[in-house]
Simulated scan of single mutants.
Amino acid sequence: MTFDTNETNEFEFIRQTAFTLGAKDARIIPACDVIVENRVPLKCRSGCVTYGKKLTCPPYVPTPDEFRKILGEYRYVLLVKFRSDAEVDPDVVRSIYKYWLDPDSPQEKKEKAEQFWKDYFSGSREILPVMLELEKAAFNAGYTLALALVNGSCRLCETCNVKGGLCVHPTMARMPEHAVGINMKKTAELAGMPITFPCTEHPEPMALLLID
């Protein structure tokens, strides 16, 4: 899809709002440049400790095939990059889940992994309200179907109401990008704002806003 300068200028206000709210970088890209792959949620099934435990994640959200159809109804997307204060230990981050969850992990590495996730989760909680503000700003500007997707699984509740089948924070909870199949690494690279992985100093979590 070729950029229409007039249309991207149309959304400059929302990009500037992202910077005002603390974003490290923000760019408008065509919705068709968002890379959706069926294999992405497979990582949720095979590598995520919260799989099936949150209503904003698989298997309770649109499949990649369903999301592709939804994405096709949007023109543009705002990609938003943040900076996490979590500090990366290169030796730990490459096996972060092992050191975090394995009770037999060396104590020093386990403590570093736990501290990393504590700091990362603390910072990532601040991403949701920012993205909700961006969604609201777009909505109030007339883009009533604007919708935010966030980085990482929902942390609004200690335990999600999966058994009850209904979210208790429906106006606030948002789906993670990867849950619906978005390959954020490829999408960010295509947009010219690549994600360094494995991260070296501080993680750079990303979120996106679908704009009608």
Rank of each mutant, 00 (worst) to 15 (best):
V88D: 02
R94T: 11
F121H: 13
L132F: 02
E126D: 14
Q115N: 11
D91G: 15
D89S: 14
G152E: 03
S153G: 15
A137E: 13
A137N: 11
K118P: 05
Y74K: 08
K163R: 12
L78T: 12
N151T: 10
E87R: 15
R155M: 15
P90A: 01
D85W: 09
L132K: 11
P106K: 06
V130L: 09
E133H: 07
N140I: 04
L156R: 04
R125S: 05
S122H: 14
V80S: 11
V150P: 01
D89H: 00
D102W: 01
E87Y: 08
L147M: 13
G164L: 09
R83K: 14
L166H: 14
V93G: 08
R75F: 01
L132T: 01
D91Q: 10
V88W: 07
K109V: 00
L128V: 11
V150S: 12
E114W: 00
M131T: 04
E158H: 03
F139W: 15
S95A: 14
I96N: 00
T171F: 05
Y97F: 15
K69S: 09
W100Y: 15
V150H: 09
F121G: 00
P176T: 05
P129I: 08
E111F: 02
E114L: 03
E73V: 02
R68P: 02
S105W: 07
E108P: 06
A148F: 00
Y74E: 05
G152A: 08
V77Q: 01
R94W: 07
K110H: 14
L149G: 03
S122T: 13
F121L: 13
K118D: 00
W100T: 09
F116M: 05
R174L: 06
A141D: 09
E87W: 05
W117M: 08
K112R: 11
